[in-house]
Design a protein around this nucleic acid. Structure first.
Lengths: 175, 175
DNA sequence: CGACAATAGTTTGGTACCGAACGATTTCGC
DNA sequence: GCGAAATCGTTCGGTACCAAACTATTGTCG
């Protein structure tokens, strides 16, 4: 009920923070931007997991893996981890989970037995075929109230933050 | 015609997605917006934890708790969980961690022994006093390249998403 | 060929985080 | 007043997630 005071509370917070820091210059524009990014992301994630992904027994990360494989067909583990924004050790565990669910399969590469190729199974493809349109509709719901050009502007502004937060910005996408 | 990419502003991933899924009837504006929110959030979080918060042995969530208590002095557990965007069960564990570190303290409320008041200790206050200016500088770094009005616009657009993702409007999740 | 650095993936140890079930306390219906 | 319902924080079972240590393979230089 009417817990729409978030913005008001934020303003209170700003005043209190300012009072605490005295004359210390504080960048409230950056504060609001960053904290809203995190709030939005965790809200969107939690709701997606509860209201859509749970039906498929998928976590957000598991869904992301399926989606990436759907888009790029098959991929090596290292690249997949980067693409999904996961540590490689994390990916190992999640691939094992998805493998148990019969949604992905791992294949050792013959020429280099250290490397592993990951791909969707038939069941995995069927799952994401059905799920993704629903997920996309959910994404539309989450951005409801924004005009198309506002969504694009939002994506553009976030791209700057993503680039800033990417610690491999200096190196090229060589692999 | 109607190509969205005249230049390299879009990330590689977005271009590839467009190429792969261009024939599906999907809402790409919403797709880009939502997936960039998540990418930005996890990148910002991971980098903050590694490059700044680790020095204080704090997770992102732990830092958030300290910050909220710093701004509002003391708070009951339930409100604190909402304010930090955490499930109440999660908060219990993290408060225990912070309590062991000597940064926060819990006090049962005399008039209603179910409720618990949480506040910073001296050490907790000292920690956040020192840490927060550094964190705010980090936030500024993460939004580097955006003009002040762009940061405000980013925060505004995200506020819409936060509202959409807030499930207290759709259903009551308390139980 | 044989040591040895580099590389790819897995294992390990630990925290964070969720949802559901639970125990303690207060409030409400009668 | 007393038992039922609501409420608050904690506990529990499970996954996700990270960084660092480890294993297995390949590539390199003597």
């Amino acid at each position: 009920m009417s817990e729409r005071h978030d913005n008001d509370l934020r303003l209170d917070a700003e005043r209190d923070v300012q009072a605490r820091l005295g004359d210390h210059p504080l960048d409230f524009d950056s504060l609001d931007a960053v904290s809203n990014i995190y709030r939005a992301a965790s809200g969107v994630r939690r709701r997606a997991e509860r209201e859509l992904l749970a039906e498929y027994r998928l976590s957000w990360g598991g869904f992301t893996i399926l989606w990436v494989l759907w888009v790029w067909d098959e991929m090596e583990t290292a690249r997949l981890a980067t693409e999904c924004g996961l540590a490689k050790g994390t990916l190992t565990g999640m691939l094992t989970t998805l493998e148990k669910q019969g949604l992905v399969e791992r294949t050792r590469i013959a020429e280099d037995k250290r490397r592993v190729l990951v791909a969707l199974t038939e069941a995995g493809t069927a799952t994401i075929d059905e799920l993704y349109p629903r997920f996309n509709a959910y994404e539309a719901t989450m951005t409801e109230g924004l005009a198309p050009d506002e969504k694009r502007e939002l994506a553009r502004l976030l791209r700057v933050v993503i680039t800033n937060a990417d610690d491999t910005t200096a190196s090229d996408s060589s692999g």
